[in-house]
Design a protein around this nucleic acid. Structure first.
Lengths: 204, 204
DNA sequence: GTCTATAAGGTGATAGAC
DNA sequence: GTCTATCACCTTATAGAC
């Protein structure tokens, strides 16, 4: 009973921290805000997690994990290359639609802590070689045009992430602030991105 | 002489503020840091610009202006649609290569101040209708496939901005931290993005 | 484990001399 | 216009009661 309660408090704190850090960033987040969000006292945060920096590291690592390895795995589905591409885009967009601030958070913090990414990547053992191999095979087989695998991968990820990260800009400039239009846009985007990419790389 | 000196100090402050705000964001920036960067005293900042918030607004507005209207104008060049597209991509990538933190800054702050964008957009009179018209004409003339103009515009901007905004992630994951490889990648990206887009939308 | 109270240091902003 | 000194407040972190 006691042990269970401990875990609950610890988890509550981390969940609250994720919410606050991802929304406001390290510099903008307040320990008081996290405590309020978790429904506990500020002192308890320090009891469980020694410092703000320490708590941030945990959140940051989780965020990076959610954004990279879990998604890369989605490219390991069955089917043809184009089918895998569609699954990948679908999975990626679904995840970041649910956590729209996640990519922006990681990108923002990464610019101030580049070392941490290098370290975390090493720890998480992120490897995209199998995707690169896949692409090269498709090129050799004449199914897609000759394109640098790195460029192709970045293109796909750019098309997925950017519209979500830059939501205010997209709604503001393109949709004149119309949120419904943006929602429709995002919904149709999954097939659109895949279509757009495949149309570009498919050999005729 | 006196008036000239005033202007210089004012300018020095704004330039320093741009540097510090764009790098660290509103929450992470320190007035002391800006003063140091400008080579003046902290009190002088408040003498010229009443508050941090006020100084930030000026920087934010300038940043948004640099990122949106100036670039949109680049689509008004001469030539065919595809040529205009190439000029646009080239201009956009050149600008954000010179200010790699600019898009990330705007995007990050925008998520905390969506209202400010709406207002600033209204003030800056940003209008992309002529681009939409261009695209629709190309579709009608059968030069490009039937694509939603909004999607096409966002695709191009995504492909330009994302790799620069997410530089640490790109270098970290794809290039294993190799900065030279990233530099080469960016250099070749200008033509690559245009090729990739044109290849996707051009009617066969 | 959880709370209240408070320490210790930082930050934006102002007062006042020059 | 520019500086030093200082205020008032906020924020992280800890001490100590329960």
């Amino acid at each position: 009973m006691k042990a269970k309660k401990d875990i609950n408090t610890e988890e509550k704190i981390v969940e609250a921290a994720e919410k606050v850090f991802i929304k406001n960033g390290m510099a903008g987040a307040r320990m008081q805000q996290i405590a309020d969000e978790a429904g506990i006292n500020k002192a308890l945060l320090h009891y469980y997690y020694r410092s703000k920096e320490k708590l941030f590291s945990i959140v940051f690592r989780t965020a990076l994990k959610a954004l990279l390895p879990n998604i890369i795995k989605s490219f390991k589905s069955e089917g043809s290359f184009f089918e895998k591409l569609r699954v990948f885009v679908d999975t990626y967009l679904t995840i970041i639609e649910k956590n729209p601030h996640l990519p922006g958070f990681v990108i923002h913090e990464l610019n101030h802590r580049p070392e941490q990414l290098i370290q975390t990547i090493a720890e998480l053992d992120i490897d995209i070689q199998f995707i690169i191999d896949d692409i090269n095979t498709e090129i050799e087989n004449g199914n897609i045009i000759n394109i640098s695998p790195n460029d192709l991968i970045i293109n796909v990820i750019s098309l997925c992430i950017f519209p979500v990260v830059a939501r205010p800009m997209v709604t503001g400039v393109l949709f004149k602030g119309d949120k419904d239009e943006y929602k429709t846009f995002l919904k149709e985007r999954k097939s659109h991105v895949a279509d757009f990419v495949i149309n570009s790389i498919k050999t005729k």
